[in-house]
């Protein structure tokens, strides 16, 4: 059963508490040059998803839905399965049981002869077109300069012409404030700069869903704010569906429409950030927040 576009527990983008700025359409002229993706954003739905590593159950029959364009932050103690959710969505891991839906198509399975079978590489390739990911450790390609990191995917996967890919890369680098580093090598950049390039690289693939996996955890403290501000702007100016795993509670509060609190592979509590951070209902959430905010 494909998920409906919106589900009762998830607010639609219109209902979501956003600044008025959030839905400002970008100028109609030269839409191809606007760096941020817009239009037909899919939602995400987990149906009884189980993930084990060896004998260790990381996700147990997990159900949740993210509405199109919704911005959701996953919080919880380490080992609670947050990062696994992002890695499943990026097809870096396979589900052991259950189904993941992106829009109205199953990510983990495909139809063949009327039966649902595990997805093959071709299906995964098709599904990954909608998803982009920014990693904790940036993972820029050290054998390519900044420009090629940004054009490699568009040219060889999306089939964009090289000129257009370069043009788009310039726009994105401009947006992340690194226009002057276009020819630099990843190793010549600071951690914060590398992460900005990695964000631009993910956006260059024009994903509809963006996954942020503890993107500031590996940065020196003084570089964290710059990257967070950038992501805040991106969240505000695009209608990307955003899934974010972070330990920065202020950032989580700013960026998300909804917060999911995880523990031991299940959702303990969910709600708008004001509620989760202001008046959590569950003891486990209170304990976790106290521990995180104390450090």
């Amino acid at each position: 059963m494909p998920p409906t576009d919106t589900t009762p527990e998830a607010p639609t983008p219109e209902e979501a508490p956003k600044t008025p700025l959030s839905k400002t359409p970008l100028p109609e002229t030269a839409p191809s040059k606007t760096p941020l993706p817009h239009g037909d954003t899919p939602g995400i739905r987990f149906e009884k998803v189980v993930k084990r590593f060896g004998g260790n159950v990381v996700l147990r029959e997990l159900d949740f839905t993210v509405a199109p364009g919704e911005r959701v932050t996953l919080i919880g103690p380490s080992g609670s399965g947050k990062t696994t959710i992002l890695r499943l969505l990026m097809t870096l891991e396979k589900v052991d049981d259950g189904v993941i839906w992106i829009g109205d198509r199953s990510l983990s399975h495909m139809e063949r002869g009327g039966r649902r079978v595990p997805a093959n590489e071709k299906h995964l390739h098709e599904m990954r077109k909608q998803v982009g990911m920014v990693f904790q450790q940036f993972n820029l390609f050290p054998n390519m300069n900044v420009l090629r990191n940004l054009t490699e995917g568009p040219v060889h996967v999306l089939g964009v012409s090289r000129d257009e890919a370069v043009e788009r890369a310039r726009g994105l680098l401009d947006m992340v404030g690194l226009a002057d580093k276009i020819d630099a090598h990843p190793s010549q950049l600071s951690g914060g700069q590398q992460q900005r390039v990695a964000i631009a690289r993910a956006l260059a693939m024009q994903p509809k869903v963006l996954l942020l996996d503890e993107v500031t955890s590996a940065l020196d403290p003084e570089l964290v704010v710059g990257v967070q501000d950038l992501l805040r702007d991106i969240a505000r100016q695009s209608d990307l569906t955003l899934l974010c795993v972070t330990h920065e509670m202020h950032f989580a509060r700013d960026i998300s429409d909804r917060v999911l609190m995880f523990d031991q592979g299940q959702i303990v509590e969910e709600g708008p950030p004001e509620q989760i951070f202001g008046d959590p209902a569950e003891q486990r959430t209170r304990d976790f927040l106290q521990a995180v905010l104390a450090t």
Binding site: M90, T91, L92, E121, H125, R128, K129, V131, G132, M133, F135, Q137, N139, L140, F141, E152, G153, H156, V157, R201, A202, M205
Partner: peptide, 16 residues
């Protein structure tokens, strides 16, 4: 392994 994963995230094919 992270390099492999970044390549998957960019949707490069196995050969690419």
């Amino acid at each position: 392994k992270a390099q492999y994963e970044a390549a998957v995230a960019l949707n490069l094919t196995p050969a690419q």
